[in-house]
Design a protein around this nucleic acid. Structure first.
Lengths: 342, 342
DNA sequence: CTTATCATTTAGATCGATCTAAACGCACGG
DNA sequence: CCGTGCGTTTAGATCGATCTAAATGATAAG
């Protein structure tokens, strides 16, 4: 039992190999009657197209490489879902790799992707990725899209999100509730998503005529955030509101504050970032700036398809806007702060 | 600027194409001095191995297809992470597809995977997948591993989880707290994971000498579960404890009950399934039966590698045990139930 | 000195498709 | 009747590796 090839199909249909090839590729050159004959033969023999052989002659391979720093994080999983969805619609298969935030592993994966002959790459660069990464891709003629994180100083397509609008709405909401002492809980990682959000915080505060009370860096896990709650609330300059770099920190802190008997929305206002599903499940609900990773994924895929089609098109930076979702964790500043401190 | 081939490497190193081929494949046939020469040439020319060409002659393609029903669900995302991790260690690249619970799409993906010449498939079958699915794979000689869900009546390797241990511990814990009126909240989907967990619930109850109070089906979303809380608590046979098919239902119900002023762990005990990270963040924490999707993913990958290596090996069903994680949402049954109803 | 043995190396066919360029059949106008 | 043009079809070369089977050279044995 050997593999059925185009040649088998062709002889079974009484045409040449070349004609059969034209049929599988939906070429307009082939006549309707011939096409029907060949298609019947294909069905009858159970022919399976061999993309591997095709890729050798033709340039395209109908695959794209996707490198994600951490699949365990639902945020990236949804991003991946968006990428997969859009690429699949365009007929490209996704070859997946998980860099685990290791730039070295990431380099290895890029090599493997090249060996597989992918038509292009979508990468959310691992921490510590160097500019060289993007330059190499350009040198190799490999279409590349960065997503969610952008390597400064590089020139490549980018699909990300713009925290500005959501952040401004969040700060405005807090301001309207009377908050003036607002702290920022940052993550300890140092990629562009971090600095972008922090910068947008500073901008939004300035727009409301406020100075940040403090910026505190915390490792981005539920546990560390939870444990950091006492330290944050007991600092001399006690905040009345906190904005967190993401919902991992926001939810962790939510729980940490509750443990202390400090009720979010009443004793302190709390804002997260990403609006994960669970933000709506804690009590009170965690107000959060919604970002839409699925849409960002689709956007990244579209940029890649465009780049594959037109390698010399101008470099694009596209961002998805964010918006604030108010929930119970934000409320009016308490008139008698001393009562809380007692 | 054309592509560097093995022939270029060979002539640059002063050997034949065949020898160069042996070097890239780490064959022991080639001498040390020659190997060094060829490797130097490869580095100098920036040679990239062409897996597409190799796959045409050789059988293996160093890729595996993975089809998941829903990437947006963190549970599957972690499963995927486990699969990816183990396959990558073995040098196989993952071609990913998201069936979105559509059997038709799933069929399409299997075809695409065949066209790509994958060495094997790991599939968590979409709802409504027919037995034919597994039979086809066997007929095609395509190594196949089912994971998390098992098509009844089929014979193929399977990597899943065994809810029995965790379920028994959960029921035992509730029993020890004095609970006798225990209801089960099931999902509305009908695959094997559903029936397995439900069956393990019945077994565990029987082992404690109890009869299930009721089994209620709910669509598996946070929102529906939350909305169903009143109906569940107001039924004539009011439960003192609830076990949920997964944490999506568990967390949704946790919030729904809280909304009613029914406090989990005090007024009713609540157990989830999967032990997602967020189970520890709500207040009180949601007790949950821990399953380890990452390990299941690794297990599925191992099974596939074994099957690829030995196509005729006996069919294996492997399961990862589960265990109960107690948290605040489980507590002693209240002596005066009427007080709650007031 | 010849022959057998062993470890290396290699030429040439081959995998299954696509590409190029030419050939084919047919209708039409001169 | 011939040349031209158009829509189809095709033979043969080709992509870049691997495979088979044979050649090569060095060493050991007879």
């Amino acid at each position: 039992m050997k593999r059925i090839t185009l040649l088998d199909v062709a002889s079974h249909a009484g045409v040449s190999r070349a004609t059969a090839s034209l049929v599988v590729r939906d070429s307009p050159l082939v006549g309707a009657a011939t096409r029907a004959k060949v298609e019947a033969a294909m069905a009858e023999l159970g022919y399976v197209y061999n993309l591997g052989a095709a890729r050798m002659r033709a340039a395209r391979s109908r695959t794209a490489g996707v490198i994600i720093p951490n699949l365990t994080n639902p945020f990236f999983a949804v991003l991946l879902a968006g990428i997969e969805s859009a690429l699949e619609t365009a007929g490209l298969a996704v070859i997946l790799a998980n860099s685990n935030e290791s730039a070295a592993k990431q380099d290895g994966f890029v090599n493997r992707m090249r060996e597989h002959g992918v038509d292009g790459l979508i990468v959310c660069p691992a921490e510590g990725t160097e500019q060289r990464f993007v330059d190499d891709a350009r040198r190799w003629g490999m279409p590349l899209v960065q997503t969610l994180r952008f390597l400064p100083g590089t020139s490549a397509d980018y699909a990300g999100m713009d925290p500005a609008a959501g952040m401004r709405e969040a700060v405005q909401c807090l301001f309207d509730f009377g908050h003036r002492r607002i702290g920022y809980i940052a993550a300890d990682t140092l990629h562009s998503a971090h600095t972008e959000r922090l910068a947008s915080f500073h901008d939004a505060m300035a727009a409301s005529g406020l100075d940040p009370l403090f910026v505190r860096q915390i490792e981005s896990t539920h546990h560390t955030a939870r444990m950091a709650a006492p330290e944050i609330m007991n600092r001399p300059a006690r905040p009345t509101a906190l904005i967190c770099h993401n919902d991992v920190l926001g939810l962790g802190l939510h729980r940490g504050l509750s443990d202390l008997g400090v009720m979010p929305g009443r004793d302190v206002s709390l804002v997260g970032f990403d609006n994960v599903a669970e933000a709506d499940l804690v009590r009170p609900g965690l107000a959060s700036v919604a970002t839409e990773p699925f849409k960002v994924g689709e956007m990244a895929a579209r940029l890649l398809l465009r780049r594959i089609e037109r390698p010399d098109a101008e470099v694009l930076h596209e961002t998805e806007p964010t918006y604030f979702v108010q929930r119970g964790s934000c409320g009016p500043v308490r008139s008698t702060v001393s009562a809380v401190e007692a």
